[in-house]
């Protein structure tokens, strides 16, 4: 709570804060982002000076609870349970429902990049990598999906039918996993998210799910999707084995996609089904 020399009175600080707020807003309104950034930094400094002067020393940010496991272990566990490419949000929900603790969301965004860097520096130094799902047509990284490097390539490739097929197969796996014990409320909530979006999966009252009924309904719809989806994935996987190097197979091929697309725009898996 020490005042810096030349510290201003709370009144002066308040006036200054009001001025700075107005200037930041004006700068933003006129599109001058650079100036807005500078002003914003000064505003934050002035605000914290006001806090110190008026309200006393800060209490500090409460420590964020950290899980016992590293994030990549947590993600690996959730993905292993799901058995299919999944978005970070789903991974987080699955972990929260079935495992102790939670995955800090902010850490998930940079995960794939970190893993790729690690692989490129020392290939196969780790037992597994968390890597991309590949699009079936261009073998490029699919947006926002994570997979595990040890999965067969077919499992890590996504075609047009895969999002639904994977959603259904994950539902089956989670239901079976939950069915082994008495599902707690967190698991019920997660299963409800699946059941409410699968025809015939809701049998009881709103919000409660019978895992066996969920698995059965999911399997029924999965039957429609499984074979065409698998064919598409297998043919793309064969192509990937043939054309991609190790790193590309894990993290997808951006360069090749661009090159190929530039030369022959209407090519690659679009028609082989």
């Amino acid at each position: 709570m020490s005042r810096s020399p030349g510290a201003s009175s709370p009144d002066e600080l308040e006036t200054r804060i009001a001025e700075l707020r107005a200037s930041v807003r004006r700068a933003m309104a006129s599109g001058d982002r650079q100036k807005a950034r500078e002003l914003r930094a000064e505003l934050r400094r002035t605000e914290s000076a006001w806090d110190d002067a008026v309200l006393g020393g800060g209490s500090g940010d409460p420590e964020e609870g950290r899980g016992l496991l590293p994030v990549r272990e947590q993600v690996h566990q959730a993905l292993t349970l799901l058995g299919a490419p999944a978005a970070p949000k789903l991974i987080g929900s699955v972990y929260a429902a079935f495992f102790p603790g939670a995955i800090p969301g902010s850490r998930l965004t940079s995960l794939r990049r970190d893993e790729e860097r690690s692989f490129r520096t020392a290939p196969y130094a780790r037992p597994y990598y968390l890597c991309a799902a590949l699009t079936a047509d261009l073998l490029a990284p699919a947006r926002g999906l994570l997979t595990v490097s040890t999965w067969p390539l077919e499992q890590r490739i996504v075609g047009p039918l895969s999002p639904r097929a994977d959603f259904l197969s994950s539902a089956v796996r989670l239901a079976e996993h939950a069915g082994r014990g008495a599902p707690d409320p967190g698991v019920q909530r997660l299963l409800w998210r699946f059941a409410s979006n699968i025809p015939g999966a809701v049998t009881g009252t709103v919000g409660t799910v019978d895992p066996a009924a969920l698995a059965e309904a999911a399997r029924a719809e999965l039957d429609v999707h499984r074979d065409p989806d698998r064919r598409r994935r297998e043919s793309a996987a064969a192509r990937a084995r043939e054309r991609l190097d190790d790193a590309e197979r894990l993290f997808g091929s951006r360069l090749r996609a661009l090159r190929a697309a530039g030369r022959r725009p209407a090519t690659n898996g679009e028609t082989d089904r």
Binding site: R21, V24, R25, M28, A36, S59, P62
Partner: peptide
């Protein structure tokens, strides 16, 4: 909107971080 982005959002975020702190 500029009030939202420049004043309100940081203030609400500050409130969230503070865990209901009075200041």
């Amino acid at each position: 909107p500029t009030f939202d982005n420049e004043v309100l959002a940081p203030a609400i975020a500050g409130y969230d971080r503070s865990g209901g702190d009075s200041r």
